[in-house]
Design a binder for these strands. Structure first.
Length: 975
RNA sequence: GCCGGGUUGAUGGAAUGGGCAGACAUGAUCGACUCAAAAUCGAUUGCCCGAGAGGGCGUGCGGGUUCGAAUCCCGCACCCGGCACCA
């Protein structure tokens, strides 16, 4: 192989080979870097400023989701999106735009910390080494990044501003009336002046001490600390995000058990923005699937809150305290329901096990004649409830899900009153009601809710049909197999002395009952969201430290801005303390807490009380923090005065025509971030907007999700993956070292032994071939398998293009200065027209097919006219920039092809002189006619009807109908 | 279970305001060049019948609308993704 290849190269010294490609590519990469070719000027004359002239052009901000600098190196799947944005960025540069395109690193995170624990290397050391290696690999692809704007989230100059934004959020509250965040100082001022009263359960502001005031403000702050159940993994010694826990309730890394533990944690009040996060989706140019996922995640439900008075047990109440003889109502259970129209059908209630009201309503003894199924065999309600709560708490998520069909629960012994019927309804505790949703309490309407139906069957509870089934099953729920839940029906059995809903449809009944509840003061129409607040702290070393200290009373204080960045301290041991994996009764010890010198400090926070002792917060931020705002820092990466200069921000991201919310012009990344990163970043963007720091309400105007590059996985008879590179194909079967192996499609990666690295492709074909192949494989948004054999197709395209311009023997130009013939001219302009549209629409695969077609057309000609050669070079320049730059210079140009104008099609040549008209008889093609595009319908019909093959096909049959779509089609329908 | 998205030659994929199905590429077969091979160039390549001209069938399956359906509608199967007792 090597001998013959060498011979071929000797025969054609100027052939486009991998070696020549490597020479061309590295040469131009060095040139571009030296020239600063991809540096985009900012407005103004500050840092990166290019003066007024430089920014007179329209602009585009093209962005990738930035990578985590993994130590295992890149495979060819990783850069797919980066190549796509690079092509788009290059296309826009050639259409006269000022293009901002760069790439940073999301470098905080667990892998570096765990690697550090294993090897003793500081995470910064390994992370920075990884970034250097990754930058080199990405540079070799020819990505046109503005290197001046690149940064990593671990740079103190960057996380200084992450911490600053955290403090902005900490020092803000959401004014629900004004629908926006406001500084917390304004809330304090309102309390102090008496314009705003403290909530009903609090004393007036002036009577509160410092700790009480801090507590109260904590209930308003957009970043707040609270006790919350988290995923605690003793085996790893850290809490984990939900997405880091497997469906089996174990850690994704290490496969250790995960426990729910209540710990004081930082949260972000993202729920305050639920409505805006939902509404603003409408104006975004995002894939509908992603918008839908966010809508579902936010989970807006319209319904009503309804209060059910509940009678707590009178002191000394024992057996004989039945439903009929209760004291006055002194508590009420508030439920959220989306089916307030079925209130007459509410025959029992359920509280979540963790509901705080449970303890207060439990009587000392069971009411007389309580059904044994309800008591669970326990002697008193308190015992029963305690036992049930313990049992529910011990259940893992998996168990809960598995048992979802078999409803469990227990009677509390208490009764509430249905506010519309006045009937007593028993109150249960059951874990099918979740504390985290709605009010943690429900009214159960078993006839019209699947879960309530199952529960009622298990506990022999009464059911009442209040929505007339439209499917003929009758109105006796006892005879049903399942609840009737349709909205398309009318209300029955819902008339009382105070209100009647019978005969109304569901919607009308909702309106009527809601108005009644509001008039009675026992409920109100309301909107509920599924979205929860965002757990924002982790017990890890490798993350942003919180710029928070606690005074001796335990009150949290923000560090003043001039103390930022608060840098990560050195520690002897950055591993969190680990425990026996199955010991859930342990609690985490944060790595930062071990550095006592760092934790215990004396500071003057500027509060007017001089230097005092404080303890630092020892949690760190989750790795989402750095990616929540990085688009802004690309704009003004070295500004040490503000996170981004307002003029610069407005220029690149501000609201503009068709984009009233502003944002990045194009953001490309994987769909796995649909509801996490993309929701968090939108939230931060809105807070920064409310506080006046940015002009864009939304961070990313257009979002595009690239698919995954998959690869074949070969497994031997034991099911173990074998090296894909060593597999041979014979007669449609696959063999590894003589043994037959099976083939399946899977992810590309080291563990499946099927990774293909960019370096391998560079060595065999060059970067331009890799870029073209990845773009030609198929539409960007679908996943497709990497086919090692097919890469050569794009290599051949570049070789043919090269040969059309350069003589392989002597390296001289072999183009002519003559005019192209008519057919070539039309082919050229049609290609220009098509490629322009395809690139603008991110349809790289069809753009490449069109360029290939044109190139194949000119390959068949003996010589290529200069205008066509230059057209081809410009058309392919965004896709294969190195070979384009080389050919452009060989064609005698002095300036870089990067800023050449992309060709514009001449409309006169885009339309064909003649078009092929298809003549169908009964829908089958019987003739093709070459006709002028301007042919009239009548002419075309006459021509078609006289075509010999048409006459033959008709066989003299009478014609019933002729459909003419000039100039493309005639369809003749015989009788 | 619910909600999305998908299913086109041996393979990746083209073509959807309904109008020539299979662009472009890979692979395969044949030919030219070569002592030979590689590379390159040329031809063929959806399936079936036919020596050929030609004909029939064909976009997961079954129906429907239409002069005409890969494209629209109804039902079904399978695959991928998301959510998962959300009241």
């Amino acid at each position: 192989m090597s001998e013959t290849t060498t011979a071929a190269e000797t025969a054609a010294p100027h052939r486009y080979t991998a070696a020549l490609a490597a020479d061309i590519e590295t040469r131009w990469q060095d040139f571009w870097e030296k020239q600063g070719t991809y540096e985009a000027p900012n407005p103004g004359d500050g840092d990166l400023g290019g003066g007024p002239e430089a920014v007179a052009k329209p602009k585009k901000f093209i962005m990738d989701m930035f990578p985590y600098p993994s130590g295992s190196g890149l495979h060819v799947g990783h850069p797919l999106g980066y190549i796509a944005t690079d092509v788009v960025a290059r296309f826009h540069r050639m259409t006269g735009h000022n293009v901002l395109h760069t790439l940073g690193f999301d470098a905080f995170g667990l892998p570096a910390e765990q690697y550090a624990v294993q090897t003793g290397t500081h995470p910064r050391v390994s992370t920075e080494a990884n970034m250097v290696a990754m930058k080199a690999q990405l540079r070799r692809l020819g990505l046109g990044h503005d290197q001046r704007r690149s940064f990593a989230t671990i740079d103190p100059d960057y996380y200084r501003w992450t911490q600053w934004i955290f403090l902005q959020i900490f020092n803000s509250w959401y004014d629900a009336e004004a629908q926006r965040a406001r500084p917390i100082a304004e809330l304090v001022e309102e309390f102090e002046s008496g314009r705003r009263h403290t909530p009903q359960d609090r004393a007036p502001w002036r009577e509160l001490d410092a700790a009480e005031r801090a507590d109260l403000l904590g209930e308003y702050r957009l970043a707040y600390a609270s006790e919350a159940p988290v995923n605690w993994c003793p085996g790893l010694g850290t809490v984990l995000a939900n997405e880091e826990v497997t469906a089996e309730g174990r850690s994704e890394r290490g496969n250790f058990p995960v426990f729910k533990a209540k710990l004081r944690q930082w949260n972000m009040r993202i729920t305050a923005y639920a409505e805006r996060l939902l509404d603003d989706l409408d104006g975004l140019d995002w894939p509908e699937a992603i918008k839908l996922q966010q809508r579902n995640w936010i989970g807006r439900s319209e319904g009503a809150r309804i209060d059910f008075p509940v009678h707590t047990a009178a002191p000394g109440a024992g057996a004989g305290t039945g439903a009929g003889e209760r004291g006055p109502a002194d508590e009420s259970i508030t439920v959220f329901t989306t089916r307030q129209d079925t209130l007459f059908g509410a025959t029992y209630m359920v509280l979540a096990p963790e509901h705080e009201l449970v303890d207060r309503i439990v009587p000392s003894a069971w009411p007389e004649a309580t059904h044994e199924v309800w008591t669970g065999g326990h002697g008193t309600p308190a015992e029963a409830v305690a036992a049930y709560r313990a049992q529910a708490a011990a259940k893992s998520d998996v168990e809960r899900q598995a048992e979802a069909k078999d409803k469990s629960g227990v009677f509390t012994g208490a009764y509430a009153t249905n506010p519309v019927s006045g009937e007593p309804v028993p109150v249960f505790v059951a874990d099918y009601v979740l504390m985290g949703y709605g009010t943690g309490a429900i009214m159960a309407v078993p006839a019209h809710d699947h879960r309530d139906f199952d529960f009622a069957r298990a506990f022999e509870l009464p059911m009442r049909c209040v929505v007339e089934p439209s499917d003929g099953r009758g109105t006796d729920p006892a005879a049903w197999d399942d609840a009737f839940v349709s909205y398309d029906a009318s209300i029955v059995n819902s008339a009382g002395p105070r209100i009647a809903l019978d005969g109304l449809d569901v919607e009308r009944a909702k309106e009527k009952i809601t108005a009644w509840l509001e008039a009675q003061g026992v409920g109100a129409g309301t909107v509920n969201y599924r979205l929860r607040d965002w757990l924002f702290s982790r017990q890890r070393y490798w993350g942003e430290p919180f710029p928070i200290v606690y005074d001796e009373e335990g009150i949290a204080h923000a560090l003043p801005e001039d103390m930022l960045p608060l840098e990560l301290p050195e520690v002897d041991d950055y591993s969190p303390r680990t425990f026996a994996a199955d010991d859930g009764d342990t609690s985490p010890e944060t790595p930062l807490s071990r550095n006592e010198e760092w934790v215990n400090v004396t500071l003057d926070l500027g509060l007017g009380d001089g230097p005092r002792k404080y303890r630092r917060e020892t949690n760190t931020m989750p790795n989402w923090a750095g990616s929540c705002w990085y688009e802004l820092r690309y704009l003004d990466p070295r500004n040490d005065r503000v996170l981004v200069d307002p003029t610069v921000e407005r220029y690149w991201m501000g609201p503009r025509e068709g984009m009233p919310s502003g944002g990045v012009d194009l953001y490309v990344g994987g769909s796995e971030h649909a509801v996490l990163h993309l929701l968090y970043a939108r939230f931060w963007s809105k807070v920064l907007f409310d506080l006046g720091h940015v002009s864009s309400v939304e961070p990313f105007h257009k979002l595009f999700n690239q698919g995954m590059i998959q690869a074949y996985v070969y497994r031997d008879s034991r099911g173990i993956a074998v090296s894909a590179a060593e597999v041979e194909e014979r007669d449609g079967a696959y063999y590894h070292q003589g043994e037959k192996v099976s083939r399946l499609l899977g992810k590309m990666g080291k563990s499946l032994k099927n990774a293909v690295t960019p370096d391998e492709i560079f060595a065999e074909y060059g970067a331009d071939t890799l870029r073209l192949y990845e773009m030609a494989m198929g539409p960007l948004d679908v996943s497709r398998p990497w086919d090692p054999r097919a890469v050569v197709g794009q290599y051949r395209l570049l070789q043919r293009l090269w040969r059309n311009v350069v003589d392989e023997a002597d390296g001289e130009l072999r183009i002519t200065d003559g005019e192209p013939d008519e057919a070539t001219l039309r082919a050229l302009h049609k290609t220009i027209d098509g490629v322009r549209q395809d690139l603008a629409g991110l349809r790289f695969n069809t753009a490449i097919a069109k360029v290939t077609e044109l190139n194949n057309h000119v390959t068949k000609q003996h010589q290529v006219p200069r205008s066509v050669a230059e057209g081809l070079v410009l058309l392919i320049a965004p896709l294969a920039p190195h070979v384009a730059e080389e050919l452009w210079h060989k064609l005698g140009h002095e300036t870089s092809v990067v800023y050449e104008d992309f060709p514009v099609a001449d409309p006169a040549y885009v339309v064909d002189e003649t078009v092929t008209c298809v003549v169908q008889v009964k829908g089958k093609v019987r003739a093709r006619l070459e006709v002028a595009p301007s042919i009239t319908e009548a002419e075309l019909e006459a021509t078609a009807l006289s075509a010999p093959s048409v006459v033959a096909a008709l066989g003299g049959a009478e014609i019933r109908k002729v459909i003419v779509r000039a100039p493309k089609l005639v369809n003749i329908v015989p009788a």
